[in-house]
Amino acid sequence: MSVSDAGEAPVFDSVSAGYGGHEVVHDVSLAVGQGQIACIVGPNGAGKSTLLRAITGDAQFLGGRVWLGGEEISRIPSNRLIKRGLAWVPQVDDVFTTLTVRENLELGGFLLPRKGVAARVDELLDTFPLLAGMTSRVAGRLSGGERKLLAIARALMPAPSALLLDEPTAGLSPEMTGLVLQNQIPRLSASGVAILLVEQRALEAIAVSSRVHVMVSGVIRASREAHEVTDWDELARVFLGEQ
């Protein structure tokens, strides 16, 4: 897979990852086009989250390379990733619970020029009107859905070129899941952000994605254009580990 073709978007080149020296994810290669949504689906424990966590420094990066905008970002400290345009939303502990909504957003814009922060917070509050009414509320007291929207808004503060989302709908109500998956995420990608989405809810995720990767036991078993995935039986077989 050629790096130059991908433009701003992230490219994973035979990445291996794990914990404490144990390899959990083996040799994963994939790319996300600019302004596109790629999703990784697969059974529980397949290593989907580990792949993301290896990039963000919360799991061990054991081999391969990750590129973003033509630069290698595999081994740089996680607090420099955002400077390269990579933002992410972890599955849990996704907000600063004792800080207010506004403070969460301001901290998201830590690297923005001082003068630009307030304007950028206002922009994001326009994008996420649900948050606009609760800027002085402490994040720990938000509902699950509000909290997830805040986490995404926080990640978007520095206008990243790529966004990693680790199971954003875990624990959300069906309405909130709909709002996040069918409404907010497609809008983000339309604005040019490359999104890599890890999801447990495979069908909903595939419905909004342009490309689908199925991960089983740490290996990508199948990669398809989302609109090609019509044969649900095949998907089910891949899920169950039959090639």
Binding site: G18, H22, G45
Partner: peptide
């Protein structure tokens, strides 16, 4: 053990 940890 390795496989177990892979499963998590």
């Amino acid at each position: 053990k390795l496989q177990e940890s892979a499963g998590t």
